[in-house]
């Protein structure tokens, strides 16, 4: 338990340290901000609630902010993502529903490599993730819901390619994020939330996660289309969250088509 808490503390300190650096050193550089809204499908599975998979729809919102940093000859960029989604799913027999809600915050630092006169940019670096949410089964009694709370250090990679299509500049992007290690809250196999929260029996509820028990990844494709001063962003996200901890298995597979607008800002001293 103490070891896990120490790991969380290290991760949080790392994030705050990087965040402080970015505030003090990068004030003269362009900032790109976007807000996207999406709709899609999801597939929920959590053996704490049910041994069968639930399928349904979800709505998603994503805010992104990215900027170039001063470090390493301006070859490092920072990306902050805040994402939230809510959804409703049903079992195959259509006798029960599950509702889900999840928010996650991501902070990434990418090293940039420009190729082909800047038309292609390749980015790679670490990402810090914090996730929180729930799945609620409308039919269950003493195990009606499963809380989701976990933090990860992830590896993140991105490719950006600029093209012109009928004189219209378009930026294509592909991004993939894969958590490498982290810490997760989860009840044990048959542990009730009454034991955890009413009786305070919390031992065994914090788990170390890595690729062996959290083979999770997020793929993201976007296209930024510029119309004079307006930049439209359309995209597709495939988010595959999976865990197998404490004898409990879960997944949240979602795929969403997203659309939004991009704002380009520049802070001048």
């Amino acid at each position: 338990m103490k070891r896990h808490l120490f790991l969380v503390w290290v991760l949080v300190c790392m994030t705050l340290h990087l965040s402080a650096q970015s505030r003090s050193e990068g004030r003269n550089y362009p900032i790109t901000r976007s807000t996207m809204y999406g709709l899609g499908t999801m597939n929920l599975y959590d053996t704490y609630l049910s041994p069968v998979e639930y399928e349904g729809v979800q709505a998603r919102v994503l805010r992104e902010s990215s900027r170039t940093m001063q470090w390493c000859d301006e070859k490092v960029s920072r990306q902050v993502l805040f994402q939230g989604h809510v959804g409703m799913a049903m079992n195959r027999a259509e006798t029960s529903n599950e509702l889900s809600g999840m928010v996650n915050w991501n902070y990434a630092l990418h090293y940039n490599i420009s190729l082909f006169d800047g038309r292609l940019r390749l980015l790679a670096g670490p990402m810090m993730q914090v996730h929180g949410g729930f799945i609620y089964n409308t039919r269950n009694g003493n195990n009606p819901a499963q809380a989701k709370l976990y933090t990860n250090v992830a590896a993140s990679g991105m490719a950006l390619y600029n093209i012109n299509w009928k004189r219209c500049p378009i930026t294509l992007r592909y991004q993939v994020d894969v958590p490498v290690m982290g810490v997760m809250f989860s009840p044990e196999y048959g542990q009730s939330y009454y034991e955890i929260f009413s009786l305070g029996h919390t031992e065994g509820t914090v788990h170390f996660t890595s690729l062996h028990n959290q083979p999770t990844m997020r793929h993201w494709l976007t296209a930024d289309v510029n119309f004079r001063k307006l930049t439209l962003r359309v995209g597709y996200m495939a988010d595959m969250q999976q865990t197998s901890v404490g004898g409990l298995k879960s997944h949240d597979y979602s795929s969403s088509f997203m659309v939004g607008f991009v704002k380009n800002l520049r802070i001048i001293d």
Partner: peptide
């Protein structure tokens, strides 16, 4: 560079290819 980067992306994807599904 492209080769290295492609390998990096491919490795990331392969790291997390196993699916956790219902029995």
């Amino acid at each position: 560079t492209i080769l290295y980067f492609s390998s990096f992306i491919l490795s990331l994807s392969l790291l997390a290819t196993s699916c956790i599904r219902e029995e």
